[in-house]
């Protein structure tokens, strides 16, 4: 899966959690930029992404996430390990 495909599917998950289907995200977006992306929804987004991509993240990996780009890279890494 390419990073842009991952971004597209991740954006969909985030839109579903936040109740905003039209949410626009780039690799540079951060939680602060996005309305509703608080610490509570952050957990839902993580769990939603785990479900969407069929992967599981480590606590340490989650703590290092700074922006959507990091998140996409993490998913890419997990998907690669899975195969």
């Amino acid at each position: 899966m390419t990073p842009s495909e991952i971004l597209k599917r991740l954006t969909k998950v985030i839109g579903q959690v936040l109740g905003n289907e039209d949410v626009k995200l780039t690799l540079k977006s951060t939680a602060e930029d996005v309305e509703g992306w608080d610490s509570f929804n952050h957990i839902n987004i993580i769990v939603g992404a785990e479900m969407e991509f069929g992967v599981k993240f480590n606590a340490s990996e989650l703590e290092e996430l700074k922006n959507v780009g990091d998140f996409v890279a993490l998913i890419e890494k997990r998907l690669a390990k899975k195969n």
């Binding site: 998950v13 579903q16 959690v17 109740g19 839902n44 769990v47 939603g48 479900m51 969407e52």
Partner: peptide
Amino acid sequence: LNFLETIQVDK
């Protein structure tokens, strides 16, 4: 409904 769908139905 899975949990993502449940969130959407609830919203």
